[in-house]
């Protein structure tokens, strides 16, 4: 049983780290501000989510576990809000409003 828990934990850790790597690769390689913001917002929070899942079996008690989940939820809420703010503040550099819509 503990082998399964260990294997699952390591798998979750790897997925989490992979999403963080994807986030920084996107931040480094994507061509413009808004595309980079996509990578930052989506990949990072998923990475933190998987790392939180990997930490849950090791949590000393239910309070530590709920604190871990709370940190993730708050970070995700903050990231989703902050990304909109940064996206909006970067708007004036790109003159979106002159581009035709779909």
């Amino acid at each position: 049983m503990s082998v399964i828990v260990t294997a699952t934990t390591i798998l979750l850790l790897l997925i989490g780290v992979a999403f963080f790597l994807a986030g920084s690769m996107g931040l480094l390689r994507f061509p413009d501000v808004h595309a980079r913001l996509h990578a930052l917002t989506k990949a990072d929070n998923l990475g933190l989510g998987f790392i939180t899942l990997a930490l849950l079996p090791q949590a000393a008690d239910v309070w530590i576990a709920s604190k871990l989940v709370m940190i993730w939820l708050l970070t995700m809420l903050a990231a989703a809000t902050v990304s909109q703010l940064i996206a909006r503040s970067a708007l004036h550099e790109e003159d979106v409003k002159q581009e035709p819509g779909p």
Binding site: H34, T41, A80, S83, Q84, A87, R88, V96
Partner: peptide, 12 residues
């Protein structure tokens, strides 16, 4: 929600 979904990002 759009900012976390595939391919879209809300920008105000």
């Amino acid at each position: 929600e759009l900012s976390l979904m595939p391919g879209t990002l809300g920008a105000g």
